[in-house]
Design a protein around this nucleic acid. Structure first.
Lengths: 324, 324
DNA sequence: ATCTTAAATGTAACGGGTTACATAAGGGGT
DNA sequence: ACCCCTTATGTAACCCGTTACATTTAAGAT
């Protein structure tokens, strides 16, 4: 690998001049520039980005910390982050935390030492001191970490209400929900919105709780259908639970949406591929990732930002598991 | 941020000694060590990994280049890579190439300049000079790049035969396939295996070609079902096409597997979540990623490796779209 | 007491860029 | 011809670790 020094020798100039040519940082005589460019070409010289990072304390990379890329919510988010980061000349380092604080802490430590320019995080829990006193900015996605931290999110509570309202107006009589884990603030909010809607009208709501994954939610879904055959309208904490529930209902010969309406949450691709396709409260997943990345990069570059938190819209997507 | 110099001052030793304590690189008097450790603790000193990388020419990071993390085959692979890399103290930089050579090249350039220790690549095409003359090792996953490059793969041709054999022995009469794009070597091999099986027996095979994604494959699936209602056995190039095909068949009221048997390829999670669950030729996706990462890291650390290419096994998973 | 050798520690160069500051060269004005 | 001011370029310090080599110190051998 050739260095800037090699280039300077061949071009017959100083390293400073080569650096200036490379960065257009100050005026260089066109003839000199030409010589330098020729030398660069001749040596096939590529600047060492690590050396640059050391001096500039800017690595053009960000850390993306998510629970698990295998969870179908995250690939689209990751894709958005990567696209946007790339567009601005940044790289993204992928970190699966599995929702474990220890793992998360470990990543933050390692990446900090590598001088990433910021973190994008979807974290498990409310107050999290893993992120205290970091020299670089952090933006939370989807799940707010701390009131003070910048965050790109959706109004989960409103989403819960929207789901409730839809099922109710579609003529549902007996309502249930399979909420996500109560340890997740997002799941809790969705559930609270859903229940508040019915509480206000003094209509009872049956509640089951599940994890946000296919395997474990399948068990809960089966349990609910078997224990409460009278239920005709179910809101599930996310689409994965919804998919499991549809499968369980199909196996039992329950007609959807005639006998049972289902509304999911998230809007992941699978929901639209199964039969019947899952109606859902859709999050703008790609945009969430895009906006979060833009916000983070603005913060990292100390650009002015007028809002450090942005709320993204939620939409009801009618497919085949609801009547309207 | 404090530096090694700050620590050395507080501990009353030279920077070399601090470095030795940090790396256990040579004997340090226990009392001195104690002093240094105290100083490190007092300052909450964290070594600058960038400086270390600059000197050592080793960044403890690898680049993972895949077409698109949103394609459901890749999250599990990425997860395996990340898990394994992490286990060995490496970070992974995620790159979506969209199968575009230009994008791929761009990534390789950037990451090379950042001194990643190696690349893990699932590339589009056979001969690819994006990877010529790189100073760091490359391991191909799933799709072999070049005969000489280390690769972790499955025998797609055998997989195609296995699918054919299964459909044939299940009593299929009229056979068809929806292959993946012929530009992909993997898709071509699967298809070749499938057709060879029947060619040998002088049984005709109807062939349609599709992309490896849900939207575009849905169109091809519908076309096949409408144009060729006599077909009773279909092998699809991957599970995504399979999912689309199932949906199209369900909508048309075709009974599966009684009237139509389907076999997919890959073994992605979705296949098992839909009704009917998709029978498939399963790749060990996680293990593919794990083995590839191990191989790459061994190469990067110049450890001895006795095989630079490893072939992973394929398994037929009987679910609900085949009779046996 | 003197020599040898091992152990502990320090000095300074190095990795490959960037940039503040100094200097040299060229152009315009009188 | 002389001075002033740009413009162009060079010098060297700096970013923060690592490590070859030099030096000091202590312990063991004779």
């Amino acid at each position: 690998m050739s260095t800037i020094k090699d280039v300077s020798k061949i071009a017959g100039v100083s390293v400073a001049t080569v650096s200036r040519v490379l960065n257009d940082s100050s005026k260089v005589n066109p003839r000199t520039k030409e010589k330098v460019l020729r030398a660069i070409d001749e040596l096939n010289y590529k600047p060492n980005a690590v050396a640059k990072t050391l001096f500039k304390k800017q690595s053009n990379s960000i850390g993306l910390i998510i629970p698990n890329i295998s969870n179908p919510f995250f690939p689209e988010l990751a894709r958005a982050v990567e696209d946007t980061a790339r567009q601005f000349g940044y790289r993204v380092i992928l970190c699966n935390s599995d929702g474990q604080k220890e793992k998360e802490k470990d990543y933050i430590e390692t990446l900090s030492q590598n001088h990433v320019d910021g973190f994008l995080v979807t974290s498990i829990t409310g107050n999290n001191d893993n992120f205290k006193n970091l020299p670089m900015p952090i933006v939370a996605i989807d799940r707010s970490l701390d009131e003070k931290l910048p965050c790109v999110y959706v109004d989960n509570y409103e989403g819960g209400i929207l789901a409730a309202k839809t099922l109710f107006e579609n003529g549902g009589k007996v309502f249930a929900e399979i909420s996500g884990p109560s340890s997740l603030i997002t799941a809790k909010e969705r559930s609270r919105g859903f229940r508040d809607f019915f509480n206000k009208r003094e209509i009872p709501v049956i509640t089951y709780e599940s994890e946000f994954d296919f395997k474990r939610s399948a068990i809960v879904a089966e349990k609910l259908l078997d224990e409460r055959p009278e239920v005709d309208s179910i809101f599930v904490g996310n689409d994965q639970i919804g998919v499991s529930l549809i499968k369980a209902a199909m196996v039992r010969g329950i007609r959807i949406p005639e006998d049972l309406q289902i509304i999911g949450f998230d809007g992941i691709e699978i929901g639209d591929l199964i039969v019947p396709a899952l109606s859902t409260i859709q999050q703008p997943i790609y945009d969430l990732g895009k906006e979060a990345t833009k916000l983070l990069l603005n913060l990292a570059q100390k650009n002015y930002v007028n809002e450090t938190s942005v709320c993204m819209p939620l939409t009801y997507i009618k497919r085949d598991t609801t009547k309207q």
